[in-house]
Amino acid sequence: METRRRSVVKAVIWNVIGLTVMTVVGMLATGSATVGGAMALVNTGLGFVTYLIYERIWAGIAWGRAHV
């Protein structure tokens, strides 16, 4: 079973990647670094919370795991 700490670290790393990508996309879409950055921050915050919930749900599901 995966620990909560591992889930949090994975979520943080994934969201740093997402923040970077969304900032660039937001800047390209709006022409503004401020608006693009704000969009990226909102997206990253929502993504972080939903990813953590998703990971914790899957951590409790035994289906598909190899039994050792």
Rank of each mutant, 00 (worst) to 15 (best):
E2R: 14
E2S: 10
E2K: 11
R4H: 13
R4G: 12
R6A: 14
R6I: 08
S7F: 05
S7Y: 07
S7C: 08
V8P: 05
V8W: 15
V8E: 10
V9C: 03
V9G: 04
V9M: 07
V9W: 13
K10N: 08
A11H: 01
A11W: 01
I13W: 13
I13C: 03
I13D: 09
I13Q: 14
W14V: 10
N15F: 04
V16R: 00
V16K: 06
V16T: 15
V16M: 13
V16H: 11
V16G: 06
V16S: 11
V16C: 15
I17E: 03
L19R: 04
L19V: 00
L19I: 05
T20S: 14
T20D: 06
V21R: 04
M22R: 06
M22V: 08
M22I: 03
T23F: 13
T23R: 05
T23Q: 08
V25Q: 04
V25L: 13
V25I: 15
G26L: 08
G26D: 06
G26E: 01
M27W: 11
M27V: 09
L28V: 07
L28D: 00
A29S: 11
A29K: 05
A29R: 02
G31H: 04
G31Y: 09
G31P: 01
G31L: 03
S32D: 12
S32F: 04
S32P: 00
A33N: 06
A33D: 05
A33L: 13
T34M: 12
T34D: 12
T34F: 14
T34I: 12
V35A: 13
G36K: 00
G37E: 04
G37I: 02
A38V: 06
A38W: 07
M39T: 11
M39W: 15
A40H: 02
A40Y: 06
A40T: 02
A40L: 07
V42E: 01
N43M: 13
N43T: 14
N43H: 13
N43P: 00
T44M: 13
T44A: 15
T44Y: 05
L46N: 01
L46A: 10
L46S: 04
L46F: 09
F48P: 04
F48K: 07
F48R: 04
V49Y: 08
V49E: 01
V49A: 14
V49D: 01
T50C: 08
T50W: 06
T50M: 06
Y51W: 05
Y51H: 08
Y51A: 09
L52R: 09
L52C: 12
L52I: 05
I53P: 00
I53Q: 02
I53D: 01
Y54N: 11
Y54W: 12
Y54P: 00
E55I: 02
E55A: 15
E55R: 15
E55K: 09
R56V: 04
R56M: 11
R56I: 04
R56A: 03
R56D: 10
I57L: 10
I57H: 12
I57V: 10
W58N: 11
A59V: 02
G60T: 02
G60R: 10
I61N: 09
I61C: 03
I61F: 07
I61M: 03
A62N: 08
A62M: 00
A62S: 09
A62L: 03
W63L: 07
W63P: 01
G64Y: 09
G64I: 02
R65H: 08
R65K: 11
R65G: 03
A66R: 14
H67E: 08
V68A: 14
V68I: 12
V68Q: 13
V68C: 07
